[in-house]
Lab assay of single mutants.
Amino acid sequence: GATAVSEWTERKTADGKTYYYNNRTLESTWEKPQELK
């Protein structure tokens, strides 16, 4: 079946920190989402 992984995108802030952005829920998080573990 379909997985939720594609909803999350790994992004970088202007100062180079990595965060994760969810295209479906429009939420962002510093922690790696469960779906990516």
Rank of each mutant, 00 (worst) to 15 (best):
T18C: 04
G16F: 02
T9M: 09
A14T: 11
L36M: 10
L26V: 03
E35G: 09
K37D: 14
A4H: 12
K17P: 01
R11W: 09
P33R: 01
Y20N: 00
K32A: 07
L36H: 08
A2H: 13
P33C: 03
T18H: 04
N22A: 00
E10Y: 04
S28T: 15
K17L: 11
P33G: 02
K12M: 14
Y19R: 01
R11M: 15
Y20M: 01
E10F: 03
W8L: 01
T9R: 06
S28M: 15
W30S: 07
K37A: 15
A2E: 13
G1H: 14
Y20G: 00
N23Y: 11
D15P: 00
T3E: 13
E7I: 06
E31R: 07
V5K: 06
T3R: 01
K37P: 10
V5F: 12
T29N: 04
G1P: 13
R24Q: 12
K37M: 15
Y21W: 10
Q34A: 14
T29F: 06
L26A: 12
A4R: 03
N23K: 09
K12A: 07
G1N: 13
T18Q: 04
W30G: 04
E10A: 08
G1W: 11
A14V: 11
K32N: 05
E7M: 06
Q34K: 09
S6K: 09
T29P: 01
E27D: 06
L26W: 09
V5M: 13
R24L: 15
K12Y: 12
E10V: 10
R24G: 07
Q34Y: 10
T18W: 04
A4M: 12
K32F: 05
K17A: 08
V5D: 14
E35S: 10
T3V: 13
E35M: 07
W30I: 04
D15W: 07
T13Y: 03
E10T: 06
Y19N: 02
A4N: 14
V5I: 13
T25S: 04
T18P: 06
G1Y: 10
K12S: 08
Q34F: 12
N23R: 09
E27K: 08
K17S: 07
E31S: 08
N22V: 00
E27W: 04
N22T: 00
P33Y: 02
L36S: 06
P33E: 02
K37F: 13
E31T: 10
E31D: 11
D15Q: 08
A2S: 13
Q34V: 12
A14G: 08
G1K: 04
E27F: 04
K17D: 07
E7W: 06
N22K: 00
W30R: 04
K17M: 09
K12I: 13
T9D: 10
Y20W: 15
A14M: 09
E31P: 03
V5E: 13
Y19W: 06
E7A: 06
Y21L: 04
V5Q: 13
E27T: 07
S6F: 09
K37H: 11
K37E: 14
E31F: 10
E7K: 03
A4G: 12
T18N: 04
N23A: 08
R11N: 05
Y20A: 00
A2K: 06
W8M: 00
K17H: 09
S28H: 10
T13P: 01
Y21I: 08
T9S: 14
S28K: 11
T3F: 10
T9Y: 07
N23F: 09
T3P: 13
V5H: 14
T18L: 09
S6N: 13
K12F: 10
A14D: 10
T25K: 01
W30Q: 05
Q34N: 13
S28P: 03
A2Y: 11
R24T: 12
Y19M: 04
S6G: 13
Y20E: 00
K12N: 06
S28E: 13
A4S: 12
